[in-house]
Design a protein around this nucleic acid. Structure first.
Lengths: 148, 148
DNA sequence: CTAACTAGTACTAAAATAGTCCCACTTCGG
DNA sequence: CCGAAGTGGGACTATTTTAGTACTAGTTAG
């Protein structure tokens, strides 16, 4: 269903929580803050740390903090950290679909993928946590749908 | 992973196969044509028929044909027929997320959803089967970051 | 030197997907 | 009028993904 994994959603929430200040938060603190299990949040933070979206501080009194300003972190990065490459189809990046010959739709899927990646890359975490929808204006488009 | 189901992909291929001519094709014929199992193709065609993307002819010598010109069928419709509503997040349409209070990102997810829907709505089946990427130019966008 | 943390990974459970099959109904052709 | 060739619509099962948990090792403040 073209659906993001829950992790991507969780990841966003965790990032949003941390974006409130620049302080160091331990995994358990974040877990309490966003209302999820400690283990799960811990896992998510590790994933985010691996992609350098949050910086970790080890040892006692350690924890995580946002690695950059919310404005400089894109949703594409968050999603990538949680779910891997943003690609709607399996065979668009790596290609290697055995039906390559029959199916000439690959190139066009790639184009669609680019649009989506771009849309996600253009939305920053800062915009994402803004109470009002100021996001989303890639071009002049709104939900103009379906003519074509 | 923000991934489309295989069905959406299969559906596209089936549609692409049928777009070659306006003739009636039986499920087994299509199956042979695209190299998939008859049962699977049959299921896909049924799904497409339910959304009126293909018209069915019952009885012996029956089968399916494209309900409209490839130019008048959008990828959004095909994906909708196979996977249901195009929405990246669970709680964007129906909302009703118990963390509503904590999480202010909903509205912005919706905006992203719109972009994606729009991108998909703008690509017709005809464009999709075109050998060259003539699709995809919503704005002047390139593929900024993403696969990082 | 120990308590409070993160790092990394392996494992398990749950859910969504994909694929198959079956039975009822419709129509063509002999 | 009968049977073969089709679709319509589910139900069912296996497989794969996803989500969640636990465990061990390493790091640092006090």
């Amino acid at each position: 269903m073209l659906r993001l994994s829950k992790f991507a959603d969780y990841g966003t929430q965790v990032m949003a929580y941390m974006a409130k200040d620049g302080a160091v938060h331990s995994a358990s603190e974040v877990a309490a803050g966003v209302g999820m299990g400690v283990s799960t949040v811990s896992k998510i933070l590790k994933m985010l740390a691996r992609e350098n979206l949050v910086a970790s501080v080890m040892g006692a009194k350690g924890g995580y903090m946002l690695a950059r300003h919310p404005r400089d972190i894109s949703m594409a990065e968050v999603i990538y950290a949680m779910d891997g490459p943003i690609s709607i189809t399996e065979c668009s990046g790596t290609s290697a679909c055995e039906r390559e010959s029959i199916c000439s739709t690959r190139v066009n899927w790639q184009g669609i993928n680019f649009i989506i990646q771009d849309a996600l890359a253009k939305v920053s975490l800062a915009e994402m946590i803004a109470p009002k929808p100021q996001v989303v204006n890639v071009s002049g488009l709104r939900s103009r749908r379906a003519s074509a």
